[in-house]
Design a protein around this nucleic acid. Sequence first.
DNA 1: AAAAATATTTAGGTTTGTCTAAATATTTTT
DNA 2: AAAAATATTTAGACAAACCTAAATATTTTT
Lengths: 219, 219
Amino acid sequence: MKFTTSEENYLKNIYHLQVMHDKKVSASMLSETVNTRAASVTDMLKKLHKKKLLHYEPYKHFHLTETGNRAAIEIIRKHRLWEFFLVNILKFKWDEVHEIAEELEHVSSTELVIRLEQFLGFPSFDPHGDPIPNSKGKMPEQEQLSLEALPLKQAATVSYIRDQRIAMMDILAHYQIKIGSRLKVIRRFDFDESIEIKVDKQPAATISKQVAANIYCTI
Amino acid sequence: MKFTTSEENYLKNIYHLQVMHDKKVSASMLSETVNTRAASVTDMLKKLHKKKLLHYEPYKHFHLTETGNRAAIEIIRKHRLWEFFLVNILKFKWDEVHEIAEELEHVSSTELVIRLEQFLGFPSFDPHGDPIPNSKGKMPEQEQLSLEALPLKQAATVSYIRDQRIAMMDILAHYQIKIGSRLKVIRRFDFDESIEIKVDKQPAATISKQVAANIYCTI
DNA sequence: AAAAATATTTAGGTTTGTCTAAATATTTTT
DNA sequence: AAAAATATTTAGACAAACCTAAATATTTTT
C-alpha cells in the first residue's frame, strides 16, 4: 500500500505515542507531535480509519490496526536506516541528520530500502541508539549498555547484571537497584571513576567503577 | 529558495525541453512531459513567472530566467548524483533507477547533496552518460562517443571527427555529415559490422565500421 | 451531581495542484 | 486573406490537507 507523506507522518507519530504512552493516545497529544491543529487531526483520524489503518471512534482513544502498525514500522525502519547512512557513510554528526531523514523516509521504493540495508550491513541500531526493525518489521533486542557507557542524564532501565555473585547482590540490595529500576547517571568523578546515579525516586548515590561496570541497562 | 515538488518538476522539464528544442518551448510540449493537462500547465507557468523563475507572456513561447535555470540545474544535479549512487553503490541496474531518483531529487538538504557528491568521488557523468553539473551549476564537458559505441536509436550530435584526412572528409561530405549534425544509429549489421544511420532529415544510409569509428558525437 | 474546564468534533474556509469545458489566439491550410 | 485546425487561456470545480470559530462531549473540580 502507498501512503501520502502526511498519512505517513501521522502513522509514525501515532506509533511513537502508543509506545510511549501504553496505547492511550489522544488527539491533543497527536496534535502537538504532528504540529497541526486538533481539528485537522480529527480529519486525518477519520481518513486513517476509513483506510483501516486505525481503530477509531469519535471521542474515544484510538490505536493503530495491525496494518497501520506494520506501515508505521516500515516508515520508522526507513528513517533509521537513512540516519545510519547519513552518519556512518556521509559522515554527518548524529545531531544533524534527523530533519534530512524525515524527508528520505518518504521515498517509496521497497527495493531501495532493502538494498540500502544490505549496503549498510544490516545494522540493528541507528546513531541515536534506536532499534532498526528488519524487513519483516521485527525490532532487534534493545542494545544493552553498562553504566560506564551510559551517557550522562540518559534515563535507562536496568536489564542485566553481569556478576551475579552474592557480594554484588548485596551491593545492589543496598542501593535498591533491581532489574527494571529506572536510573540515570548524574555525574562522573575523574579521580576514582566513581559515578553518581539516581535510582527511581531515591536520593542520589555514588557507586564505584567496578559496580557500574556490572550493571547493564536499556535506554 | 525552496520549491514544491511540483514546481521542481516543471522547472526540470522546461530545462530539458529548452536544451532539446533550442529555447522554443511550448505549453503543449510541456503538458506532455509533465503529464498534465494544458490548462494546469498554464496555471503553473503563471506561478513560476510570478516567482521570477520564468520569462512568460500569454500565448508566447517561454523560457527560464537565470534563477529558474540555476534551480533546474540543481534538481538535475541531484537526480544524476542519486542515479550514480543507486547504480554504483547500491548496485541497481541502470534502467531501474530513474523513478527512484525522481523521488530522491526532491529531498531538499544542500549539505546532503554536497556530501553525497564527495562520497561518490565527484562523478562527472551519471550511469546513462548524462553530465552531472557541479555545485556551481557548471556542466562537465560532454562525454564523446564514437558511432560504434552509440546506443541504438539514441539521438546524438556529431561533435568530433578523429581522422581528418581528405578521404574521410570526402565520405562525410557524401553522407552530408558535419559537426552539429543530428543522427542516430538505426541498425547494426553483424556480417561486416556496418551500421545504418539516419542523419538530420535525410533518408537512412549505411556506413562502414571504419567510418563509424571516426565519428564522435555527444548525446 | 452540577458547574467549570478541557478535549474533540463539526461547519465552513483556504491553498495547491489538478481537472473539464468553453472561450480566445495563433498558426496552418486552402 | 479567409477558413480550418491547433494551441492556449479562462472559468468554474474538486481533492488533500490544512485553518478558525463554534458546537458538543468528556473529564475534573467543587
